[in-house]
Structure formats: C-alpha cells, structure tokens
Design a protein around this nucleic acid. Structure first.
Lengths: 100, 100
DNA sequence: TGAACATATGAATAACTAATCATATGTTTT
DNA sequence: AAAACATATGATTAGTTATTCATATGTTCA
C-alpha cells in the first residue's frame, strides 16, 4: 500500500476546507458572480439578487473574512469587488465539472 | 448599475454550491489527497488517515454520489480512485489561494 | 443638529451535517 | 454451511450555519 506523503499539513487542509465551504453556498456564489463584472454596492447586490440587505451583508462579511472580496467606501455606500483572480478560476473550474 | 447577465441558471448554481460543499470538509479532502497517488481500498484509507471505517465509508459515499471518485470491487475489498482530473485541479487551485 | 439613508451586527431559530455506534450486506475461506 | 473479513448503511447526536428580525453604526444633507 503506497501512502500519500505529499499531503499538506492538517492545518492547511482545514484552511482549504474552510475556503471551499465559502464557495459551498449558492447565495455566496451568486454574490461572487454579481461581482464578476466589477464592483457593486451592497444595495445593488441586494436588489440584483432580490434578497434581504441583511442577508447579503452577513454573507459579504464571510467573503471578506476569507479574502475573496475587498471593500471600498464611497460616501454612504460600500462597494465590494473580487479580491483575487483565483476566485473566478476556482468557480469556473468547478463549473466545468458540474456542466460536463 | 450594470447587472451581471451571464450568471448561470439558479439550478446550476445550486449544483455548483453542492460540489464545493463536498470539498468543504477536511476528512473528504484528506481522502481525496490519499487517492492522488492512485486507487486505495476503504481499509487502506481508513488506516492511512487513522479514522473509523464507518466514517470513511460514509464520506466515500458522498464523494461517489458527487462523481468525484469511482469504485471497483476486487474480492472482499472495494477500491476507490479519483473519477476525474478536475478534482485535482480544483483542489490545487484552492490550495494556491490558501498558500498565497 | 437632526432626519434620512446605507450598511453592519447581534440574537434567535430552523435546517443541515459529520462522526459514532450498532448492525446489515456481500465476499471468501475452511 | 459457518466463520471471518471488508464494506455499507441506518439512527442518533452534537455541532455548525443561513436567514430573519431588530437595532446599532456611520455618512450625508437640509
């Protein structure tokens, strides 16, 4: 029996699982998709997805905590955008699997 | 406000979220990593990860249901292996994000 | 300064999930 | 056929999580 010896540290695996957990929610995926074409305010996202502002805000915090989106304040509004190109890539790779 | 218009169907998004949910568990990630170097029986995986056979079996079923692993019976043992190259790619892409 | 607006946050709840235990199913060996 | 072995499955439980409601924080404008 060949044992897998280049498995990442347990702690890294936990982080990795946490990252995938973030993608594992349709509301968050929809938010990320909304941000695919550039930054949007909380209100815009909330209107686009037709979901409660509070729900969006809570989920944006999850995305922010996990460094998938970044924030910019402009007056009363707060604009969110994708933090990283990995985000698109991970999602698209997953989509490949789903659509195959 | 520019609306995102190439967002996949809601149903596809649910499937996508479900797929990522599968990756969002460290036990399942460890199982997948174990299979990176080829097929292994349930007992081998269980021994390698030092986890209950039942736990592994339950999680393998999740992986199987989501078409991430495939099965082959050989006598008493059942051998599992990765079903798809996407699996490695998705995981590695996620790892990139975590390790950055 | 106070009202209106945009967003964030805390608490509560309902739904989901991973692990465990006990046991069932299926295969081989004697 | 019975025992031994490998894996799967059902029920239970503890822990987690997404949403909602209510409200707080922070910003602008009159």
């Amino acid at each position: 029996m060949a044992t897998q010896d280049n498995m990442p540290e347990l702690e890294v695996l936990f982080e990795l699982a946490d990252l995938f957990k973030v993608f594992g929610d349709s509301t968050r995926l929809r938010i990320l998709y909304t941000l695919f074409d550039g930054e949007h305010s909380v209100g815009e996202i909330s209107a686009t997805l037709n979901m409660e502002q509070s729900t969006i805000s809570h989920q944006l915090r999850v995305l922010r905590t996990n460094k998938l989106v970044k924030v910019r304040r402009e007056g009363k509004q707060i604009y969110y955008s994708l933090d990283d190109d990995h985000v698109k890539k991970v999602i698209e790779m997953g989509l490949d699997h789903v659509l195959e």
